[in-house]
Design a binder for these strands. Structure first.
Lengths: 337, 337
DNA sequence: TTGAAAGCGCTAACAG
DNA sequence: CTGTTAGCGCTTTCAA
């Protein structure tokens, strides 16, 4: 594109390219005066540094990779907002990749990162991913990772999550306190960190009342969505049918409403509902949905900040750091008063 | 990261680097046999090409820039899905930038593109943007642009939109046919392409009934959201209050519900509502929201495809090409039967 | 079909 | 504080 290079500036100013290069990067070893002259001419000539040449030389790209399952989801969309804002602030560029919950896609994306395309990665694991061999290799090779929301407990790096266990516990307890006897838990995966922690919270709340988790009350929506949906409906028609439900991810809230509509069940009369969700339409659903609202924007922001600070002190090795930002239970009308 | 370079392969195979380079890119001037040998060793050694060195040499980055106002919005989220899918298919990387409706941010982002960081850009204009001087310059300099949804009518390039005029016309007509006399139009900007086309459709439908657009029925939510919201509520309390409303973007649907709730107005009894929206909770709102559903994913996909095909034939100059993908009016309960 | 050489535009020691 | 000298790792002519 632009034909003027650092060489043009150097010639024009009777300086060496290296001086100009350093001046452009505001190096401390360049006099204030030269910096000014360089910047002035650069501006005048509309000079922009070639990022690829720069990356090649410096072995750093000023770009981060964001690898997430989905973007049509309030949580992830908000998280991206947070990430993008701190990236922009720090002069970083963000490359986005969607896995659509496929482990294979995720792996292909990560494999590309061996090329050094990104300086670091922000990631929320796909539903199908169980292990993290690829990731370990990349980390070993020196690529920094920060996980958010869906993390790996056994990876030595920063992980930003919400208080999954407590939130699920509180939500379940709320249902219990409002008369639910047969509470369902809708999961989205069996392996995901958030799935198990939320399930544990649910389990703990039941246990507190001397209840145990019934097989038929835990429905996992993974590969065959429709089959799971039918299972949900089935459970809602049994004699001893469920009277409360906790949806562990936003995507599962609407199916509950749909099932109730189809079965002419009333919420919260027949079934009380709470869902992890960042939907901003929650308050206007019929009935308004009680939610566990996650600090999605904040999580994205904190994750990106953690990565940025790590990238800044180039030395050092990554250490495990678990940051938990609490969610809030917002009670609306899908649960009884 | 990976220490093995094209040179390693060359040495190992007793070939020249240029041969290896060409083989890796599947050049026609390399024998099938050599290609095989090269690929084999590359795989074995886990060789990955250095994208930055490659970009520096070839003057092309295999990455596109996506510049949009927002991502916490069903339309844009779905569009990104479409874009990402075709990018991934074609081996392109996508750099994402959010303007948050600020012309200034948009400009800063675009200025960076002078550096050659991206091979092309996919863009939906920010609300505050009126002119396109910067964009013209970039296009002149050879950077391809494809606009989607929020476009510039007077720019010589591909533009992918939905049938804004007709959709708004149809929606308004629907309201009219169901008894509305005082229909409001909620805009999000005065200058945006979608704003004016949708307003025109609304205007045309009114005109057909011998009605003219009343000043107080068009409310533009731009800078001071709250002021506009108050204006909306005010209009809903006048003696001759509005009895129907068309929201020209998704973001404005919920405020209508909110206002009605606060004023104890019933939808659709007191006010019938239709909104441009891709909310998948639309059917479960109270009452279910009648929407003009845009082919968001498709728009993203088509826009990205247009850019890809353009990038493939490196020759040629960009030409104006307007692709319109129709929306559908989905009637639910926020309008009378 | 393959190779040699000359960069792409910048950064990075190391001198001066 | 400034300049020199080598590259970074790949892509390109252009010869062979």
């Amino acid at each position: 594109m632009s034909k003027i290079t650092i060489k043009t500036l150097a010639k024009e100013l009777k300086l060496s390219v290296s001086t100009v290069s350093k001046a452009m990067r505001d190096s401390h070893e360049i006099s204030q005066e030269t910096k000014l002259r360089v910047n002035e001419l650069a501006k005048k000539l509309n000079y922009v540094i070639n990022p690829y040449a720069s990356s090649l030389g410096s072995k750093t790209s000023k770009t981060i990779g964001v690898v997430i399952p989905e973007v049509v989801d309030s949580f992830f969309a908000l998280a991206i907002n947070g990430i993008e804002s701190v990236a922009q602030e720090n002069g970083y560029h963000v490359l986005i990749y969607l896995t659509h919950e496929s482990r294979e896609k995720e792996q292909n994306i990560l494999m590309d990162f061996e090329s050094g395309r990104v300086d670091g990665v922000l990631m929320s694991v796909s539903r199908d991913t169980q292990d993290h061999l690829y990731i370990d290799e990349l980390m070993q090779a020196g690529l920094p990772f920060v996980f958010f929301d869906r993390v790996f407990d056994d990876v030595e790096t920063s992980q930003i999550t919400t208080n999954d266990y407590e939130s699920a516990y509180l939500a379940t307890k709320h249902l219990l306190e409002h008369g639910c006897k047969e509470i369902m838990f809708l999961a989205y995966s069996k392996s995901l960190s958030i799935a198990s922690k939320r399930l544990q919270g649910y389990t703990a709340a039941l246990a507190e009342q001397g209840l145990v988790v019934a097989q038929q009350n835990v429905i996992t929506f993974d590969h065959d969505f429709n089959a799971s949906y039918l299972q949900l409906k089935g459970r809602l028609q049994e004699a001893n049918r469920s009277d409360g439900v906790l949806a562990s991810v936003e995507k599962l809230a609407i199916p509950i409403y749909q099932a109730c509509e189809e079965l002419h069940l009333s919420i919260p009369g027949d079934l009380q509902v709470i869902s992890f969700s960042n939907l901003d339409t929650a308050a206007y659903l019929n009935p308004p949905l009680s939610t566990i609202t996650q600090p999605a924007f904040e999580i994205g922001k904190v994750a990106a900040t953690a990565l940025m600070t790590f990238l800044k002190r180039k030395d050092s090795v990554q250490v495990k750091e678990e940051i938990v930002i609490p969610s809030t239970l917002v009670v609306r009308k899908s649960t009884k008063a």
